[in-house]
């Protein structure tokens, strides 16, 4: 059973997750079907900057985050940004969207100049997230858990971060049991996606270098 405090925690995180989104004027531009290669590149980089800002605003609303040491806050955000953004993008691709939208977004990424060897694992990850059919509470909690990973580089007080992450893992575990009673391994599958994210993170630096050269 989820306790009253856990419900409050979930509500705060879900509200923050829903409140902070990419602005509509940018999403409208993303859905335009006519664009040059340069326009596409500039827009995708604008989206990336926006995604980081959205991520920071979400994170500021995670209970306890702003009470962490300031430099540890920076280290957590820096260390998790790439993973959190891939997870957020995958969640966007999992949503029910009007016909054709997914195809337009996919096409932009395929035409971006990013090499196929990086696009394939990225879209495989999006597919694996889609297949999980997470509810919004699970999505928001998983994002928060990704950000509050204690072993990121340069984090000084790992225990303080663990103290924030553990209650979220606990409520996510309970939620998985309640939402997916026929799938006792569901929570483990979710955590498995975090491992997949680490692999994407590892490729990301290489992907950017290759993209820039293209």
């Amino acid at each position: 059973e989820i306790t009253k405090e856990q419900r409050t925690l979930m509500r705060l995180i879900v509200d923050a997750h829903n409140r902070h989104q990419i602005p509509q004027d940018i999403t409208k531009k993303l859905l335009q079907e006519q664009y040059s290669a340069e326009e596409n590149f500039l827009l995708l980089t604008e989206v990336a900057t926006n995604q980081v800002q959205v991520l920071v605003e979400f994170t500021k609303n995670i209970p306890g985050f702003l009470s962490l040491d300031h430099e540890d806050q920076i280290a957590l955000l820096k260390g998790s940004a790439v993973e959190a953004m891939f997870l957020r993008s995958a969640q966007v691709f999992s949503r029910k969207m009007p016909n054709g939208y997914i195809e337009v977004l996919e096409e932009r990424i395929r035409k971006s100049g990013i090499s196929e060897e990086f696009i394939t694992p990225m879209f495989n990850f999006y597919k694996s997230i889609n297949e999980l059919h997470m509810v919004e509470e699970e999505q928001a909690l998983l994002t928060a858990i990704t950000i509050l990973t204690p072993d990121r580089p340069y984090v000084k007080d790992q225990q303080a971060v663990e103290r924030l992450q553990e209650p979220m893992l606990d409520v996510l575990r309970k939620l998985c049991i309640l939402q997916h009673p026929q799938e006792p391994q569901y929570f483990a599958r979710l955590l498995g996606r975090l491992t997949e994210l680490r692999t994407l993170n590892h490729y990301h630096a290489e992907m950017l270098t290759s993209w820039r050269m293209n």
Partner: peptide, 21 residues
């Protein structure tokens, strides 16, 4: 390294300031 500095700068600015929805 250039990416990392750029990312950190965006994070620091966003942490200090307010980002309008």
């Amino acid at each position: 390294p250039g990416n990392s500095i750029g990312l950190e700068a965006i994070i620091r600015k966003a942490l200090m300031g307010k980002y309008d929805d």
